[in-house]
């Protein structure tokens, strides 16, 4: 509150109100934009894929590879790397 008073002393109350109003309008615009542009949740999809694999492949068939080790299927060396083996 003291900070606002200090800023208002320098800017003047009207200017401070205008700046704060513009800032809040910008925040609303950014949040509105972000809510309409929704990014694909890769980690959630990986978790979902693991759940599905657990359901359709018996435990003996599916290798347990943590999601953190997930790599692009184009990275053949990494895909071929057994679980727990560090990359060279």
């Amino acid at each position: 509150m003291n900070m606002i008073k200090l800023i208002s002393k320098h800017l003047g109350q009207e200017k401070l109100a205008a700046v704060a109003f513009l800032l809040s309008a910008a925040c609303f615009a950014i949040m509105g934009g972000c809510s309409t542009i929704s990014f694909f949740p890769t980690e959630l999809a990986q978790k979902a894929a693991d759940k599905v694999i657990d359901d359709i492949w018996p435990a003996s068939a599916a290798a347990k590879v943590p999601v953190s080790m997930s790599v692009s299927s184009s990275d053949s060396a990494a895909v071929a790397r057994p679980a727990g083996t560090p990359a060279k």
């Binding site: 890769t42 999809a45 990986q46 894929a49 693991d50 599905v52 694999i53 492949w57 068939a61 599916a62 290798a63 347990k64 590879v65 999601v67 080790m69 997930s70 790599v71 692009s72 299927s73 184009s74 053949s76 895909v79 071929a80 057994p82």
Partner: peptide
């Protein structure tokens, strides 16, 4: 994403085709 997880969790000895179209055997 499912394709990647299926390949990651495939058994050793199974084949998978990478995005370049090359077949690779999981060691």
């Amino acid at each position: 994403t499912f394709g990647e997880r299926f390949i990651n969790r495939a058994q050793s000895g199974w084949y998978y085709r990478d995005s370049a179209g090359k077949w690779i055997k999981k060691p």
